[in-house]
Amino acid sequence: MPFNVILEESIMQKDIPATAGSKMLESFISPIDATVVTRLKATDIKIVGRYAFSEFGISGLFREYQEKKLTKALENADVMLCNDFTGAIAKATKSCGMFYIQPKYGTVSRYGLIPSVCSLDQIGVLCKDLDVGQKVLEIISGYDPKDGIMNPDENAQARDEEKPPHSDIQKQIKQIICCAEFMGNMSRYDGVKYGYRAKDYKDLTEMYTKSRTEAFGEDVKLAIMIGAMVLSSENYDRYYDKARKLIIND
């Protein structure tokens, strides 16, 4: 199967920068190969490039992706591996004749995936040909003990198109949950250990704030602040806790 694969910038490849589409990680050289990469490398599939739809994928929470982004992604490749936690990639495929195979949560290893929203992150397959996409999914999926949410008994399977409960407030629920968990995942980017550090700062606090403000884009900053709001102690029950309960209860 001599396919060509593009990796989203959030999927780590050893000794190559994994930028997640962000200035914060422009210089970050990954020390590991993601499990999906290791599995691809064991076949004759070629990894031919890297691409980001948006910074840490978060823009999909606030706006739709334009078709041209998807066509650009698969310009020179059959398939792209990406994390569609917002659902924006899948939505955009409808109007340009592509397919996005969203796997059932926990069937593809997230080891080596730069996390955005842990309870929704999953590496899926963007493709022009569904059979090709399915074949690639089979290769990359399957139990990996390095990812603690995988079920050893489950095989790769595409998630069914289920109708979630409370569809009229689905957008709000999604935004609340995504922003909250996203905020938690962005805290590690502080200019201390790797990644972008501002040039001038007078003290530690300024080093933190300048590095993060200069290196994060608008959508990332917005999501982080919404996350901080919904998780604040006065709001926790009203927003995050409630959204969590509504997402699974009827």
Binding site: Q172, Y208, T213, K221, L222, M229
Partner: peptide, 27 residues
């Protein structure tokens, strides 16, 4: 969130923040 926005950024983001979070009240 350890950010230090410029006044312009803050104005812009406040607008977007309010737009989005006001829709949460339906919960």
């Amino acid at each position: 969130a350890m950010l230090a926005l410029s006044d312009k950024e803050r104005a812009e983001l406040t607008k977007r923040f309010d737009e989005i979070t006001s829709t949460f009240e339906v919960l």
